[in-house]
């Protein structure tokens, strides 16, 4: 079953028939397993890895460190829920170390992100400080290398 998830996590396009052929299971078995994964939200969604830069569409990513004073009784979760609902927030993590949340924000340009931080994030109750870092270049995203490199050549026939 883990192999099915592994395959789909690498290529969401794979059909049940293809997965069945690769894993040596029957097509029904695979289709049922995938349906169950979807039902149980083990598979949450099928997405596409887009290289926005190559598409010529400007996307700016910012990594924002957020320090906060957690809310009494509900801890960090209540703060997190307020942050994550903003559509600009691409990812949100509670961290160990020098700050509490790492907020990944996606916007059309730097101004959008600066505005979001200044107007929405920083003024939130319990947020005591932010530090914004803009992404200059994306080399590897979610396991995918985003820059082209020449493939090493092999001899066409070897023993």
């Amino acid at each position: 079953m883990e192999e099915i998830l592994q395959l789909l996590s690498e290529d969401a396009h794979l059909t049940a028939a293809q997965i069945a052929e690769r894993t040596g299971k029957s097509e029904d078995e695979v289709a049922n397993a995938v349906a169950k994964f979807e039902e149980d939200k083990v598979i949450r969604r099928y997405k596409t890895v887009v290289d926005w830069e190559r598409a010529g569409i400007e996307h700016v990513f910012g990594f924002i460190e957020v320090r906060c004073a957690p809310e009494r009784g509900v801890g960090f979760d209540a703060v997190a829920e307020r942050i994550m609902e903003f559509p600009e927030v691409h990812s949100l993590y509670l961290m160990s170390g020098a700050y509490d949340f790492l907020v990944v924000v996606q916007g059309g340009n730097m101004r959008d992100i600066a505005y979001f931080v200044a107007e929405k994030l920083a003024p939130l109750d319990h947020v005591v400080g932010t530090a914004t870092h803009f992404v200059l270049k994306r080399y590897k995203v979610d396991g995918d290398i985003m820059i082209d490199r020449a493939q090493a050549k092999r001899l066409p026939i070897t023993p």
Partner: peptide, 11 residues
């Protein structure tokens, strides 16, 4: 442009 299945080493 030929596809080689004749290679005895890992890709």
């Amino acid at each position: 442009d030929a596809i080689s299945l004749g290679i005895g080493e890992p890709d």
